[in-house]
């Protein structure tokens, strides 16, 4: 990233020893600018400009879904052991860049304590889910004793391409709570980042890019929910939509209605904590959130059960 061209508007945050970053989308393992050429300004709580972030369009959604579709089989066909290792590797890289994320969170208005606790929780959650890759079928798969001369078993398989609508906060933990079960499931995804607090998610793309995650497995786009949820929920090649229960009813209903076009699976679970809550009681809110997110049933939501029969004979 360091030798990248910087033709964004000069940020006021520029100092001699810190060059501000241009935040871009992450599609197919690359960092393209939004196809639309538009941006919006991310500001600190006091109104100070922090960064310009892409206002992605439906064409970015299209490109991201295309990349996700292409990558899905590659990700799913890796052995469970391998997927677990790659996910663990994400935690290692994230851990090494811990300070960078804490700084970004503080820029966005986090207290030092909340930022530290959240990044710790993120690392913990990634390690937790990394361990599920080779256990989910052992716990939830089954051999079914059918009343005929057949061997019959059910195992869990990925659904395919997932649209993930991140909650606004917690800025990284909220997104990971939705992403990680999908990675365990073997899905590939397009993440719509938090509008107000997109920086940790954007920076997380750099972690992914350096963690052996195959290109296209996770794609991240920034922008307005009102512009991105319609195209992703209408997209005929998206198989699942997941989001957080704090999402505006209007968008949630839109997801449910549009899911009928190709019978998308739609799931919402709780990963939201408001910034106020994060700052006022970080310990309690984050540990509650992590407890709720550490739920293997979220993985089952975004998988299909496949049942195979075969005769038993000489």
């Amino acid at each position: 990233m360091a030798n990248e061209q910087t033709n964004h508007p000069t940020s006021q945050a520029t100092t001699m020893n810190s060059i501000p970053k241009t935040y871009k989308n992450y599609i197919n393992g690359e960092f393209p600018r939004t196809e639309s050429g538009r941006y919006y300004s991310v500001e600190a709580l006091d109104g100070k400009h922090i960064a310009n972030v892409g206002l992605s369009s439906k064409k970015d959604v299209r490109n991201a879904v295309q990349a996700a579709r292409k990558a899905q089989a590659t990700w799913a066909q890796k052995t469970a052991y391998n997927r677990g290792q790659i996910m663990y590797r994400i935690a290692e890289i994230l851990s090494g860049r811990r300070e960078q994320f804490i700084n970004e969170m503080i820029l966005l208005g986090y207290s030092q304590e909340a930022a530290e606790l959240e990044i710790n929780a993120c690392i913990e959650l990634i390690v937790y889910f990394a361990g599920w890759t080779d256990k989910i079928d052992q716990v939830f798969g089954s051999v079914n004793p059918v009343a005929s001369d057949h061997f019959n078993f059910s195992r869990h398989e990925p659904v395919g391409v997932v649209g993930i609508i991140s909650p606004e906060t917690p800025s990284l933990l909220g997104m990971l709570g939705l992403l990680l079960p999908n990675m365990v499931a073997g899905n590939s995804q397009v993440i719509i980042a938090s509008k107000q607090f997109p920086l940790p998610t954007c920076t997380f793309a750099e972690v992914l890019a350096t963690s052996d995650v195959p290109a296209g497995t996770v794609n991240i786009i920034t922008g307005l929910k009102s512009e991105l949820i319609p195209p992703i929920s209408q997209h005929m090649d998206v198989d699942v939509l997941v989001g957080d229960v704090s999402l505006d009813t209007e968008f949630r209903v839109l997801c449910e209605v549009e899911s009928a076009s190709n019978m998308k699976r739609v799931y919402f679970w709780e990963s939201f904590i408001s910034l106020d809550e994060l700052n006022s009681s970080p310990n309690e809110t984050i540990s509650t959130c992590v407890h709720s997110l550490k739920d293997p049933y979220h993985i089952l939501h975004v998988q299909e059960v496949k049942t195979t029969w075969h005769p038993i004979s000489e």
């Binding site: 005769p311 038993i312 004979s313």
Partner: peptide
Amino acid sequence: IDAVGVQE
């Protein structure tokens, strides 16, 4: 030959 199929 699949014996289960034959039996069926």
